[in-house]
Amino acid sequence: MDRSGWLIDEHGIDLRKALKAKKETGRVSPRVHDAPSAAVIRDIEAEVLIEATPTDFKTGEPGFSHMKAAFESRKHVVTCNKGPLALAYYALHELARHNGVQLRFSGAVGGGTPVLDFGKTCSTGDRLIGIRGILNGTCNYILTRMEGEGVAFEAALAGAQKEGYAEADPSLDVDGFDTAVKLVITANHLKLSKAGIKDVKIRGIRGISSKEVTKARREGKAVRLIASASAESGLVVAPTIVEREHPLCISGANNAVEFDCEYSGPKVIIGKGAGGPETASSLLRDLLEVRAKIDGQPGSRPAWRAAGAVGGPAR
């Protein structure tokens, strides 16, 4: 499904053909459809919705309506769309629970790097004290360039745009908003906080001068846009000076997150924080998890049904 229509085929869609059509015509479907997308999602017979429409940080739409329609019709949801999750984290979970289906979103933070799953594993059987990390690759890329080439923020940003690391409108990235949204999702997912996006103290990297960056470098340190969450200081996104030796102090368009636990101590996960194929891999991972959980559940749909056989008892 895209903005102009959708493809439906009970026997499966020929992906190669669909992608070719998308490339050539800009549309997945030969026809332009005008029924509301949420209604299509609700009425179609399918088991899972993969929601990957653009993130809207203000309303969460159209993602929220899409997911709501999926839940209403008892479909599982796999998504990497941060907007609805940051704005309506508990509402979406409540809807999933109410309808007895799963909501998975490992691609929403860290792209293909399983930041949320890693954090969950770290905090299971231990008490999570705090999270600290770099959650936006674009900002990190810009800061790294300022550091390496001694250039001003504007020049580094222009460079990042030329290389395709930053959008034409970079404000969501450089002003810290994208980082804050991911911080909210992570903190809620790990039950560290019930805070929403309004509760995050946000300062982006626009005001950083090359002087500050150079000074930090001379002292064996570096400026990074750090997102942090803890019971004491709440949720904060701010440029922070970190030791160059610290594992969080990564370079380039990467993400790194540290989970500090009371008994097992701090652990860090590092990886690419975004990218199409990377994020797609996490969608696929979630999809397989959905399948695995259905199969593991007693009384769930038997495997022969999934294999495409017909007949048998109704659900």
């Binding site: 309303t59 704005l87 309506a88 508990y90 509402a91 979970h93 409540e94 809807l95 109410h98």
Partner: peptide, 21 residues
């Protein structure tokens, strides 16, 4: 709410989000 007609229970989180919006 859920669909217990006559004595329905609100889905609190969904309600809070939607009413606020």
């Amino acid at each position: 709410t859920d669909d217990r007609f006559g004595d329905a229970t609100p889905l609190l989180e969904v309600t809070k989000f939607q009413v606020s919006e």
